[in-house]
Design a protein around this nucleic acid. Structure first.
Lengths: 110, 110
DNA sequence: ACATCATATTCTCATATCGGAATATGTGTC
DNA sequence: GACACATATTCCGATATGAGAATATGATGT
């Protein structure tokens, strides 16, 4: 069995750095493909292919306006990722407290 | 150019569902490989291979105790994922998002 | 040294991938 | 219709993958 398809879910789709770049770029406002191409410096066919993947998993939506296709990030599709990583939040938010405590303990020694 | 290696970063490593299962399982407390095998019903070689990937990206750490190898989740390595998804949080949590969604729903009625 | 238990590695295979190049589709204008 | 513009699709090649099976390594006890 090979690796799961990039279009199988949001986890697989955002594993690709370029696709995260695109999502970041489209988060502020919708943009036509051509602007993504120049802004991120990616070849046009690659951008179209990445957008297709993102669209398949619901991470972007599109709208046609004349010759142009406007894409926008649909951040809601990232919610499962956020929720899942959130369950590990205590690993670092608690740590801050622990480091603090350890630092204070060291201070007392001196 | 093929897909980036699963060991290139945490994003790629957790794209595999089994590896997320393992991270979930090891989050509570460290466990030997054998227990992961029975708990998740995955073949032992697969578990070892997944653990190697997770270890390569710092998502788990290991400790030997006699014949057994204990693994534990290192949640800190998921922080980049959490931080990144957090930048999209307003898509679902912000009141504006809710208003938008409701407005779009109303549009669809017509 | 040997046997046993626990884990890791190696091998094969079918498959999905990404980038690049070329081409196709779709839209508006003359 | 012919043309230009914007975007999408197809074909190619190199490569990493995950599962399964077989085997290797490592640790302990006798």
């Amino acid at each position: 069995m090979p690796r799961a398809s990039t279009t199988s879910d949001a986890f697989n789709a955002v594993a690709e750095p370029r696709r995260r770049d695109i999502l970041n770029y489209l988060a502020a406002s919708e943009k036509p493909v051509g602007e993504i191409v120049v802004a991120l410096g990616i070849e046009q066919p690659s951008v179209s292919k990445h957008l297709k993947v993102l669209r398949d998993v619901g991470l972007v939506s599109s709208r046609r306006e004349g010759k142009q296709m406007f894409y926008r990030t649909n951040g809601e599709a990232l919610r499962p990722l956020h929720e899942w990583t959130k369950t590990f939040e205590h690993f670092w938010s608690h740590q801050l407290a622990r480091v603090k405590v350890r630092a204070e303990a060291k201070m007392k020694q001196n």
